[in-house]
Simulated scan of single mutants.
Amino acid sequence: MILVVGGAGYIGSHFVKELVKFQDVVVLDNLSTGHRWAVDNRAVFVEGDLGNTTTIQRLFHTYKIDAVLHFAAFSLVAESVENPLMYYENNVVATLNLLKTMKKNGIDKFIFSSTAATYGIPKVPLIEENTPTNPINPYGRSKLMVEQILDDFAKSYGMKYVVLRYFNAAGAYETAEIGESHSPETHLIPLILGHLLGQRDTISVFGTDYDTHDGTCIRDYIHVTDLAKAHLLVLEGLLNGRITKTTYNLGNSHGYSVKEIITICEQVTGKKAKIKYMDRRAGDPAKLVADSRRIYEELGWQAQIDIKGIIESAWAWHQRQL
């Protein structure tokens, strides 16, 4: 059985949708940001928190767990700056609780959801896994701390692990039964689509004077189902012993500017956005685009769904919520 921590969240629930086709799955989630309705009914669901070691131990005692995937992190940059204690407690201390209990129970296979925020503001056009990490906020630092802990656990205790550094996850499941549902919503594509559905008066663009072709920030967007399928390949590699310790970037390796994303959303929906141009936000890099060649060369994975398909799936999900 595979334990998916945070499996009621956006990315975790999409992964569970794919995993239950091949494996028995138990999901642990405290529902602080996830949703019970997002968990596939073929998975066992346990409501609980990584802060409670008794809950984790009971899971490992009840189920024969072969590997653990960890999606249960707080991930809002601004919130992490305002309340770093909350981020270090949830993203680092709670993860240590999980790793400690895994060690106690002889479970040594772990997949960790990390982030492009570990790179900070890189000075390269395409970010490779060996690009220097220099996070500029508590969220990115909390993720990098866990990466460093995993490296130490591998060296000292034989932990076998994979770190997956996500770029911008977007889109919704192909049936539109699950998708992004954050409160508050901070991601660009759902904010634009919400605006085009009349849920907000304008869409804000932060900064128009970046060193990019149209002056707005460029980001790498990847469909959440493509992310889920990358996790399946990585899990298979851990379980069959092909992988013991590595890090992969997960992105499309192609960037789109904020203005371009707005234009594609307008084309998909047939609606016109009302844009409000604002000053830059502190710490926003001009460009973040992944080099995902490593996982392609080693596991044969690459993103399959293009930006139009990403936005079309998100639009179907948002319309279904009306």
Rank of each mutant, 00 (worst) to 15 (best):
L3D: 02
V5R: 01
G7S: 03
G7T: 01
A8M: 02
Y10G: 00
G12T: 01
F15S: 01
V16T: 01
E18F: 02
F22W: 00
V25R: 00
V25N: 00
V27F: 04
D29W: 03
L31P: 04
R36C: 02
R36T: 00
E47K: 15
G48R: 09
L50T: 04
T53Y: 07
T54R: 14
T55H: 08
Q57I: 08
R58M: 11
T62H: 10
Y63K: 06
K64S: 14
D66M: 12
V68L: 08
L69K: 04
F71V: 06
A73H: 07
S75H: 12
E82P: 10
E82M: 12
Y87T: 09
V92M: 08
L96N: 07
K100A: 11
K100G: 05
K103D: 11
G106V: 05
F110V: 04
I111T: 08
F112P: 06
S114T: 06
A117G: 10
P122L: 01
V124C: 04
V124H: 03
E128M: 12
N130Y: 11
N130Q: 07
P132V: 07
P132G: 03
S142L: 07
L144V: 14
L144Y: 05
L150T: 10
D152W: 13
S156Y: 15
R165Q: 12
T175A: 15
A176I: 12
A176T: 13
I178M: 11
H182M: 15
S183R: 15
P184F: 14
E185K: 13
E185R: 14
T186Y: 15
I189P: 14
L191H: 11
L191Y: 12
I192G: 09
I192H: 11
L193F: 09
G194F: 09
L197M: 13
G198P: 10
G198K: 06
Y210S: 11
T212S: 04
H223N: 02
V224P: 09
D226S: 04
A228M: 05
A230K: 00
L232D: 06
L233P: 06
E236P: 02
N240K: 09
G241A: 00
T244F: 09
K245D: 06
K245Q: 10
T246D: 13
N249F: 05
N252F: 15
N252W: 15
S253G: 11
S257D: 07
V258D: 07
I261N: 03
I262Q: 02
C265P: 10
C265D: 07
T269R: 05
K272R: 13
G283K: 09
P285L: 06
Y296E: 13
E298F: 08
I305A: 02
I307T: 03
W315L: 00
W315Y: 01
W317A: 01
H318E: 09
